[in-house]
Design a protein around this nucleic acid. Structure first.
Length: 692
DNA sequence: GTTAGGG
DNA sequence: CCCTAAC
């Protein structure tokens, strides 16, 4: 009598009857294991601190020694040991926060369940979600914090900066040039310079925060999705639901996802060390620090030991992997966690892989320096030394860099675009440029000094010049590493970043406005990307979940083409190893948020089949959605249950109709109930009676 | 290959 | 989504 249940239910055309299947005896007896060891994480060293300290040491030892980094590396390594390892301090906060939330959740849920338990599934529609919407204070507080965290994590500074700083570092090191601060300053300056060049955009750039909530973009989210299930979704009468979540819903999600994507992209570039950051231990930054620290733990040693940049990611990968647990536990908050996870994963799997979205990011560094325009590199030679260091003479010159000139940027954006998108667009443009590799140009009396080997003196730069006659410019740099950087890996990495990334990101989908020259390269860059990253969020399938697809993402921010005035051969570089890299096994599956329709189908199936039969659920409702595995469905259900048990304010992504969530809870409670009854060897009869 | 859970 | 233990 056990066997027929499937067939029978399978044949049911899922009307309103929820009671269809005899729950399969759950294998839940399997003990749950939370085996994974939590390795000490307290060891996490703050990358910044480390860097700062090391840098400090180096600097303290005199600029002279900085001039020759070939000998500097050993110094670095040595110094690193002495550096006192600082520990992440802001962890607690996050933990508490989480606990709060969790506790509340569980309370909510249990209360809810009990409430539900007494009801029959059939009338689950009757109870309103309002009951669930009460938000315990602690909870709301937690929620309130979220935005800031997100924005920060998002700005996660780092990756972008890190990547850049990192890319600078080779030169910096060799020339004894930049310290973390310098790198940061440069970044800020870049923005500042831009502001200067485009005064009217000053305010737009000023915040420099990546848009957390860009303006709503019309999304086609819930439109073409039905085909997915080939008519398997039965709109039974028992599901009175409002109009499907339309464009407005998807907006948030898009941003959300875009967000994630960004973060993932950030990941790629994150193999870099983030020296541009300041070790202020704000809650936000601490996360960043943690993240960075984790990475840095691995990267730094490799780098230090090798004494140059010749280390390959191949070397790092394994260790990254092994240490994963170090930070897995550091989760402090959901959203942050998610991001970090992605980052971690990426770092381990495709660490050196193209820094997908440098262009998307900016950092708090900028944000905190709204007036970067007047930012000063007043640390003298410490932070802004020239290539031709004044090693030979002891008279150091003090520099005051008021601004950097930035290559012209052309931005074209429809009038209808929102300010937010404008910001984003500009930001992208700037970042694309920055992310594309920069170098500093030095101008003396307006004349460019090209010979790096010249000493300042030889160049005719003396004290008197420093303040007024010296100018710095940021220039796109696409050739430098080919000669300077040792490791092919790095070159590859950089090239990838420089070319495909920014271009692809910005490339207008409709070639409506491009500047000829760059065009071709865009094509080049875009093609391979499509197979990887862009495809990342772009649902190749019918799934409307495909959020930040290029079209959507840049719907309002069309053409931004960094026009590189200098001899930039950018775009000439062919992203050769793109495919190779991405195709490597480890590639994380692209994120495909469940659409409301999918959720509905899932709910429907679960209502009928129950939890614990995901394979059947899959076959039943998602047989045609090859990208949805039963594990996915199971996971989705898990999240749905959770989602349903939290306040609407805490939910993210495309809103799931409350009634659906209600059904989720109802079904969940119902089926868990069934399982419970089965556990204590309750004969199937009981079930049969219940199911009647 | 499935399930169930933790991450 | 990923990873795994336990089936």
């Amino acid at each position: 009598m056990v066997f027929q249940k499937r067939t029978s239910s399978e044949m049911e055309s899922c009307g309103g009857s929820h009671v269809a299947e005899m729950p399969r005896v759950p294998k839940s007896a399997r003990g749950k294991r939370s085996v994974r060891k939590k390795e000490s994480q307290g060891q996490a060293m703050c990358a910044f601190d480390l860097l700062a300290t090391v840098a400090g040491k180096l600097l303290d030892e005199g600029e002279g020694s900085l001039g020759n980094m070939s000998a500097g590396s050993p110094v670095l390594a040595a110094s690193a040991k002495d550096v006192c390892v600082k520990q992440e301090q802001c962890d607690e906060e996050g933990k508490h926060l989480k606990n709060d939330v969790m506790d509340q959740d569980s309370c909510n849920e249990s209360a809810l369940i009990s409430h539900i338990a007494s009801q029959r599934l059939a009338d689950h529609h009757s109870w309103k979600g309002e009951d669930l919407n009460e938000v315990p204070k602690a909870k709301s507080e937690a929620v309130d914090k979220e935005p800031s965290m997100i924005s920060c994590t998002k700005a996660d500074l780092g990756s972008n900066f890190g990547a850049i700083a990192d890319r600078w570092s080779p030169e910096s090191v060799e020339s004894g040039a930049f310290t973390g601060d310098a790198a940061a300053n440069v970044m800020a300056l870049a923005a500042a310079a831009y502001n200067k060049n485009a005064p009217d955009m000053y305010n737009l750039l000023d915040p420099m925060d990546v848009d957390v909530k860009p303006p709503p973009l019309v999304s086609s989210d819930s439109t073409g999705e039905m085909p997915l299930y080939g008519g398997k979704i039965h709109k039974s009468v028992s599901f009175p639901r409002g109009p499907k979540g339309g464009a407005e819903y998807s907006v948030d999600r898009e941003n959300d996802d875009d967000d994630d994507d960004k973060s993932s992209g950030c990941t790629h570039s994150s193999t870099a060390t983030n020296r541009g950051l300041r070790p202020n231990c704000t809650a936000d930054q601490s996360r960043v620090k943690k993240f960075l620290a984790c990475k840095y733990r691995k990267v730094a040693p490799a780098r230090m030991h090798k004494g140059d940049l010749s280390y390959s990611d191949a070397d790092r990968k394994p260790s990254f992997r092994n240490k994963k647990m170090y930070y897995t536990r550091q989760r402090t908050q959901r959203s942050t966690f998610k991001r970090r996870k992605m980052l971690d994963r990426h770092s381990t799997l495709v660490s050196e892989e193209f820094a997908k979205s440098n262009a998307k990011r900016t950092t708090k560094v900028n944000a905190r320096e709204p007036h970067a325009a007047s930012l000063e590199a007043n640390k003298g030679s410490n932070s802004m030394p020239f290539h031709g260091s004044c090693k030979s003479n002891d008279c150091h010159v003090k520099l005051k860099i008021k601004s950097f000139k930035v290559p012209e940027l052309l931005i074209e954006i429809p009038e209808t675009a929102s300010v937010g998108s404008l910001k984003k667009t500009v930001l992208e443009a700037v970042n694309a440029m920055l992310g594309g590799g920069l170098r500093v140009g030095v101008l003396h009396h307006g004349k460019k000094i090209r010979d790096d080997s010249k000493t300042l003196m030889q160049a005719g730069i003396d004290h008197d010049d420093m303040l007024d006659n010296i100018g710095f410019s940021l220039e796109p740099n696409c050739t430098r590493h080919s000669s300077q950087l040792a490791a092919p890996e790095d070159i590859e990495f950089l090239e990838t970043v420089e070319t495909t990334e920014p271009l692809a990101r910005i490339a207008p989908a409709d070639s409506s406005s491009k500047h000829g020259e760059v065009d071709a390269s865009q094509e080049l860059a875009l093609t391979p990307l499509t197979a990887n990253y862009q495809g990342n969020d772009h649902d190749s399938v019918h799934s409307p979940g495909g959020i930040s697809s290029p079209e959507k993402a840049s719907a309002n921010s069309r053409a931004i083409v960094p026009v590189t005035p200098v001899d930039s051969s950018a775009g000439a570089i062919v992203p050769a190893n793109k495919a190779k890299r991405s195709s490597e096994q480890g590639q994380r599956r692209i994120r495909r948020p469940f659409s409301v329709a999918e959720v509905e189908a899932l709910v429907l199936a679960v209502e009928k089949l129950g939890t614990g039969r995901w394979r059947d659920v899959k076959l039943r409702a998602f047989d045609n959605a090859k990208h949805r595995t039963y594990v996915d469905l199971k996971d989705k259900w898990k999240t749905l249950v959770h989602t349903a048990s939290i306040s609407p304010q805490q939910r993210r992504g495309e809103p799931v109709p409350q009634d659906l969530l209600d059904r989720v809870l109802a079904a969940q409670s119902y089926w868990s109930q069934q399982q419970a009854k089965l556990q204590p060897k309750t004969p199937p009869l009981a079930e049969a009676r219940l199911l009647t």
